[in-house]
Design a protein around this nucleic acid. Structure first.
Length: 710
DNA sequence: GAGCGAAACGAGGAT
DNA sequence: CGTTTCGCTC
């Protein structure tokens, strides 16, 4: 693609006012945004500082920055170009005090949220009995993404009441700890603009042009931000593809893109339907799949690259054979590893692929899964550092109070917690006054004061010294390395290497000019897995379909095209969720430039249990047969996907998606099965929100017929 | 309070 | 199956 096509040109050159670009997969939407910015700056004389462009990932932002800089012939661009979340952080750093919150706030990641919620559930006792922290968190997160307020109105549903109570407690605890979570970065920013018109006016005035990428994945908070920011100039330029909306579980609402023309009157709509990425058979196959969806605006992509190999289907005996096939095929076809991606629905699928690639001596990188910043030793160190900049952060304090063990055990901790609750003080403040309290042993009080001194000394240091210096002192004084070495004799080398790597990251941050410990910690929390990935590495890329969005590869292997995996088991009940799975499948397929290979296994080990029989995905059946080439032992006879209701199994009707009734737990849905016959096990999610695992033969379950939806 | 083995729990996608 | 919590002993 050297010059812009007519549709792209129109989108780039159009005049002021709101506009919606419906950009199909591979239609050059990034390029359109880049060219539009270049056009505004170079041709219209717009000051770069008056342009704001928002993306969903740092990776996308980084690529856009590079391309805009190249296009304008400058080293560094002056536009504000970054992710929604980093924009929220940018605003809150300056303005959060207007919401009555401290400027030195820290960002709580999902592990922090989980540990906080666990504690709140425990403290709430009977009021929140039997609620899983994860369920509570996702409920709270959903409320926040919809920008609701945690008031405790009269509620008829007891479960909802408990959730509401936890929401209120969570909200209060987070605020007291001087923390914000991921949702808050957007929600608080939206609220700030809502409640402080003068602030909104200032930013809306500055950003004459607002551009938003992946608009189909915006949630309500992001939508409100878009409205606020374009409330003065109304030059809002959004780019999206309703067929690639795959984040509804994160609060994204497809309505935002479907309703754009109503929301922003006089909007112009542009359609980009020429695909520059994929060879024709790949695009035809992907189009055929997504065309089954009902909620679409409707686009028909056509390929710039006619000819090309048909899409292949490998129908493996089991998941090991599937993984082996991928490695063998890469070797046999002499594919250059850097041009290959292996995509899958769940992170759990990655292990087998890693093994088979390793056996063949193929280099690979795994994106996601166990994140560097999710590692225990890194989280410990981060918790210390966060406590240094935010002494009110009780969540971090709890994590490190006795790590490494320093004689402050459960009894002492409970005593401190009780005092903190009673006096409405932070844990650290309570600990400062511990000498006044005689109910703790002298030894415990001594240990507690030592800890307070440690934090005080290092906090002072953090005010002036570079991050790496503070970290060195921290590791030294806590004897953290010795602790790691002692605690895990088997794996300590790897763990120490992780600590080394983190030290290097700190030093690098300092060397780049840094911004102090607080800024370092805030920015770290916004890093994503894909951000670390270097596409020029000569290695096969392994990642989930979700992570692959926005990327492209010459050769793509899409694994696990089975009912229960893609579409995922948890989506089988609802037509809307099936449609999202279908879009996910479409996103994955359209990552491929030259070749696409679909794989499925007839049998796959499930968690703990034995192998389970698998049905091939309905999405495979949606690809026209003449577009599909069967390879290996592939044989679709009798395995073609059938409508879910007609499928039969040998397990007495207990299978994926079956609606059942249990005397104790009520109605539920089978999420997974494993084993067979007398050893058949089934995981069932009940309408109460709880999930449980059963030996089917031992459990009084009734199969409910004729029920499709709850 | 620390350390260890046993039991229980939970497994979708991630800024 | 892998990880976290529990419960017992020292």
């Amino acid at each position: 693609m050297t010059t812009l096509n007519t549709a792209q040109k129109e989108a780039v050159l159009h005049g002021d006012g709101p506009s919606l670009v419906l950009a199909g997969a591979g239609s050059g939407k990034t390029r359109v945004i880049v060219e539009r910015i270049a056009h505004l700056v170079a041709d219209q004389g717009v000051d770069q500082r008056n342009i704001l462009a928002l993306t969903f990932t740092n990776k996308a932002a980084e690529e856009m920055r590079t391309r805009v800089a190249a296009r304008l012939g400058v080293e560094k661009i002056g536009c504000w170009l970054g992710t929604f979340h980093s924009f929220g952080l940018y605003i809150l750093r300056r303005e959060i005090d207007k919401l009555g919150r401290p400027k030195a706030f820290t960002i709580f990641d999902d592990a922090d949220q989980l540990s906080l919620m666990k504690k709140l559930i425990k403290d709430a006792g009977n009021q929140a009995a039997n609620i899983s922290p994860r369920d509570a968190l996702s409920w709270v997160s959903r409320q926040k993404q919809d920008v609701a307020e945690p008031d405790l109105g009269p509620q008829s549903i007891p479960l909802e009441n408990a959730y509401r109570l936890l929401w209120q407690k969570y909200h209060a605890a987070l605020e007291r700890a001087g923390g914000v979570d991921f949702d808050d970065l957007l929600v608080l920013t939206a609220r700030l603009f809502e409640q402080h018109p003068e602030v909104r006016q200032r930013y809306a005035d500055r950003y004459r042009y607002v551009m938003i990428d992946e608009y189909q994945d915006t949630n309500r908070a992001q939508y409100l931000l878009a409205r606020h920011l374009s409330s003065v100039h109304a030059n809002i330029f959004v780019v999206g593809d309703e067929d690639q909306s795959i984040y509804s579980w994160r609060g994204a609402t497809i309505r935002n893109i479907l309703d754009f023309e109503q929301d922003f009157p006089n909007a112009r709509v542009f359609r980009l339907e020429q695909n520059y990425r994929s060879m024709e058979p790949i695009l035809k196959a992907a189009n055929a799949v997504v065309a089954r969806n009902k909620s679409r605006l409707g686009k028909t992509l056509w390929s710039s690259h006619p000819g090309g190999d048909p899409v292949r289907l490998y129908d493996a005996a089991d998941a090991e054979a599937e993984a082996r096939f991928v490695a063998d095929d890469i070797v046999e076809k002499k594919l250059s590893p850097g041009q290959v991606a292996v995509l899958f629905r769940t992170n759990g699928q990655v292990r087998l692929v890693e093994e088979s690639l390793r056996r063949k001596g193929l280099a690979y990188v795994v994106i996601g899964g166990v994140r560097f910043y999710g590692r225990k030793e890194i989280k410990d160190v981060l918790a210390y550092l966060r406590l240094l900049v935010n002494p009110a952060d009780d969540v971090s304090l709890r994590r490190v109070l006795n790590v490494p063990a320093r004689g402050i055990g459960a009894t002492s901790q409970d005593t401190l917690e009780a005092y903190a609750l009673q006096r409405q003080q932070t844990l650290l403040d309570v600990m400062r006054e511990v000498d006044l309290d005689q109910s703790l042993t002298g030894r415990a009080r001594h240990a507690i004061l030592d800890f307070v001194h440690l934090i005080d000394d290092l906090s002072l240091m953090a005010k002036t010294e570079p991050v790496a210096t503070v970290l060195d002192a921290l590791l030294e004084r806590t004897k953290y390395r010795e602790f790691v070495q002692q605690a895990d004799e088997k794996d300590y080398r790897t763990r120490l290497e992780m600590v080394d790597e983190f030290q290097a990251a700190c030093a690098q941050y300092d060397a780049k000019g840094g911004g102090g410990l607080l800024a370092f910690l805030q920015e770290l929390s916004l890093l994503s897995d894909v951000d670390q990935w270097d596409p020029s590495m000569p290695a096969v890329t392994l990642m989930t379909c979700h992570s692959a969005k926005g990327l492209e590869f010459d050769h793509v292997y899409l694994l696990g095209l089975e009912e229960g995996l893609l579409p995922h088991a948890s989506a089988l009940e609802s037509e809307d969720e099936i449609e999202e799975e279908r879009r996910l499948c479409y996103v994955a397929m359209t990552r491929a430039r030259k070749s696409l290979t679909l794989c499925a296994a007839r049998s796959r080990m499930t968690y703990g249990g034995g192998p389970a029989d698998r049905q091939i995905s309905r999405f495979v059946g949606e690809v026209p047969r003449d577009q599909l080439q069967l390879v290996g032992t592939a044989n679709l006879g009798g395995r073609q996907a059938q409508p879910a209701a007609d499928r039969v199994t040998s397990s007495g009707g207990i299978k994926l998606g079956t609606r059942v009734w249990h005397a104790q737990f009520g109605k539920g849905t089978v999420m997974y099965t494993s084993g067979s016959g007398a050893k058949l096990r089934a995981k069932i999610r009940f309408e109460s929100g709880r999930s449980r695992d059963f030996m089917v033969a031992m459990t009084p379950l009734k199969v409910l017929d004729g029920e499709k939806k709850r």
